[in-house]
Design a protein around this nucleic acid. Structure first.
Lengths: 188, 188
DNA sequence: GGGGACTGCATCATCAATGTAGCAAGAAAA
DNA sequence: TTTTCTTGCTACATTGATGATGCAGTCCCC
């Protein structure tokens, strides 16, 4: 992707368009390019200059958002920090990103190899962390890690749905992990 | 809604259109009315005769799907059967409906009073069942029922995502409830 | 400061989707 | 059987999104 080093103002335009697209499309997924341009504070033709068509814009959004997810996980030092600490930190970081890139993350183009590469890295980090946590006794030894990962992601998605909630990432992360570990049954 | 009793063939058309719309739109949410008509095996003008515009079609889909959810829950006799049995049965029934109406359920028009009425009934049944289950000792006495309900719905949605899985509703329901109750931590 | 990159604006062309209308043929209901 | 409803088809009008182009003014960077 990073083929041509853009000039500073062009870079700014791209960022503004991506931000606006996330904002507008999460409200109305069928919004026109013109509405996105308006929200970004640029002319419609500028959007077309940077992104040949809607598909290209969607692709760029997905790639951008998934890269930020990857950064969020890596910032938690999942390979070196103690498992439970890393788990909490990564969850909190991811929640912060997910909160404002839900649309892009959920609608990333699954046929774009670049985006898929990043997603694969994220998946590897995640699976690795879960396997380590299981070995550390945090999860049950016979836990279904594939189902566990899906539940984990679902809990994160659900956590950022509630627009009414305060949304302190640390509080939300605590709740996610508590639910993931213990569920809602009576605790003996 | 049931204002005019439709003739048998018209009724059949409406059903075919709703089915086709669910099928086509879940693949491509921006599909045209023409694509839906084609999938339904009717002419485009027939779709327009039954549904003035896209919005009306979406509204009808949402209402229809939520009514089926309500039936699925009531069929489990949540007020009379033992809590755990009702919970399992309702979950399995809902999974079956959700599996083939995800799009309609997720995109139901929140501003349509008819649909909202059905959703409210469903929410009441659900909340009631959860409160009963908590009183019966199935859930912890201090469980956050609002968060519990959201997690429950998220688990159901996640369960029908996996297209590769076999998808026996009873198996899936068991997994949903097991996860909901115990999570993935080590069991003492 | 100067050359090149970038933007806003105005314009134009095209296309797909939408929505309406009328009519002849067929299906359902009485 | 007769009446009424429903459908497919064809035709047409309209609208909105899309995408391309050119140019004058502005901003970056060397």
């Amino acid at each position: 992707m990073a083929a041509k080093p853009l000039r500073a103002d062009a870079e700014r335009s791209v960022r503004a368009i991506l931000d606006a697209a996330q904002r507008v499309l999460s409200e109305n997924p069928t919004a026109s390019m013109e509405q996105i341009a308006e929200a970004a504070g640029v002319a419609r033709t500028t959007v077309h200059r940077r992104f040949a068509n809607r598909e290209a814009l969607l692709r760029a959004m997905g790639l951008w958002a998934w890269q930020r997810i990857k950064e969020a996980i890596e910032a938690a030092r999942p390979m070196t920090a103690p498992p439970m600490v890393a788990l909490h930190q990564a969850t909190a970081n991811v929640l912060a990103v997910k909160d404002s890139w839900t649309f892009a993350l959920d609608n990333a183009d699954a046929t774009d190899p670049e985006t898929e590469a990043v997603r694969a890295e994220v998946a590897a980090l995640r699976d690795n962390a879960f396997a380590g946590a299981r070995d550390a006794g945090i999860f049950a030894p016979d836990a279904d890690l594939a189902w566990l990962a899906r539940v984990y992601i679902a809990l994160i998605s659900e956590s950022v749905h509630g627009q009414d909630e305060a949304g302190d990432p640390d509080v939300l992360a605590t709740r996610v992990l508590d639910t993931l570990l213990h569920g809602f049954g009576p605790r003996t």
